[in-house]
């Protein structure tokens, strides 16, 4: 009998494995991608997606779901490309107000026991409307510093990869290692016992939402740093991408079972899937469909490995 791995590591094994397989496939198809520039290009767009995925994961930790993630990131991108660039003080104030709004949403959802899906659905209209008001037509300029960070070229390892590792580490520390993370996951797992232990669930929900907003804001700013200009619809697909990323990374919808490192890996896998398909020269008609197929294959793989694991446990 081998030494049993902690279940958290097993959870991570499958997402890591699928990412590795996909990466090998990409390198096989396009050996030139196996370079500093190639890797940076492959994973550039993964940075904002990874941040949005972490934000979604935080919300999912307390058994909620944020359907406004995409519009919120778009809104932040619009703010970053206009106010944050021209008048940083007002820009920061707007973003702080956005975080406060998220915290207030958490409070509202908790106090009135509302379904988070509907409240965030409503908020998605609000963020979308605000984004249209700020930037009626695509435009704006990325703040210099955001641009500088995103296109910086550190030695040896590309920026995109360093950023993803840092995001994964910070999120892992906050959620899995800090005491507040334990409370947050506890709220998702068994809210009543957390409450009996003397913690305020209301406070925990508000903190989760605020923290999620913070990560989503980073996603918006980094996205603008990459694209240099913004548009009210720039990140709409992030809502579904972020949910898919969390699930791919081994997270679950209920019970506070999430994995920050897994979520980042899930986001990387989704980004890589797009490049993989274009290297395969699949007709553009089928690109989206093939992305769906990859999602299905990875999840099927996960089921298979889970079954094997259970069989081992039983024997």
């Amino acid at each position: 009998m081998k030494r049993a791995l902690p279940s958290d590591s097993i959870r991570l094994l499958i997402p890591a494995l699928s990412l590795t397989i996909l990466l090998i496939a990409v390198f096989y198809l396009q050996p030139r991608a196996m370079s500093y520039v190639g890797l940076n290009l492959l994973f550039n767009l993964a940075v904002p997606i990874a941040l949005a995925t972490i934000a979604q994961m935080l919300i999912m930790t307390v058994n909620d779901l944020d359907l406004s993630m995409g519009t919120f990131v778009s809104f932040v991108a619009c703010v970053a490309a206009t106010f944050l660039q021209a008048t940083p003080v007002i820009g920061v104030l707007i973003l702080v107000a956005a975080i406060a709004t998220y915290a207030a949403l958490g409070v509202l959802i908790h106090v009135r026991t509302l379904p988070s899906i509907v409240v965030t659905l409503g908020m998605s209209f609000v963020w979308g409307g605000l984004a249209v008001l700020i930037l009626p037509a695509p435009g704006g300029h990325a703040p210099e510093w955001a641009r500088a960070v995103m296109i910086s070229r550190p030695p040896l390892v590309p920026m995109a990869i360093i950023a993803c590792v840092v995001i994964a580490m910070v999120a892992h520390f906050v959620i899995m290692r800090s005491s507040i993370g334990v409370i947050l996951r506890g709220v998702g797992g068994n809210a009543r016992s957390v409450e009996r232990a003397g913690w305020s669930i209301l406070g925990a929900r508000a903190a989760t939402y605020a923290l999620a907003a913070f990560f989503a804001i980073l996603a918006g700013i980094s996205l603008v740093g990459l694209t240099t200009s913004a548009d009210a619809n720039i990140a709409l697909r992030y809502t579904l991408l972020s949910i898919a990323g969390v699930i791919l990374g081994g997270g679950e919808f209920t019970g506070g079972r999430v994995s920050p490192i897994g979520a980042v890996i899930g986001a990387l896998t989704l980004t890589l899937a797009g490049s993989f398909l274009s290297f395969l020269r699949i007709s553009p008609d089928w690109q989206i469909g093939a992305q769906g197929a990859i999602l299905i294959v990875v999840l099927g793989l996960r089921l298979l490995l889970n079954r094997l694991e259970n069989r081992e446990k039983r024997s």
């Binding site: 509907v118 409240v119 409503g122 609000v126 979308g128 409307g129 605000l130 008001l133």
Partner: peptide
Amino acid sequence: GAGIRLIMTGLIIIAVIVAAGGRNPNQR
């Protein structure tokens, strides 16, 4: 305008769900 329309739609959805949600606290 389009922006205001979206914002109002969103706020109204939330207002309705908040108003309706408090009616029946036992119902999840």
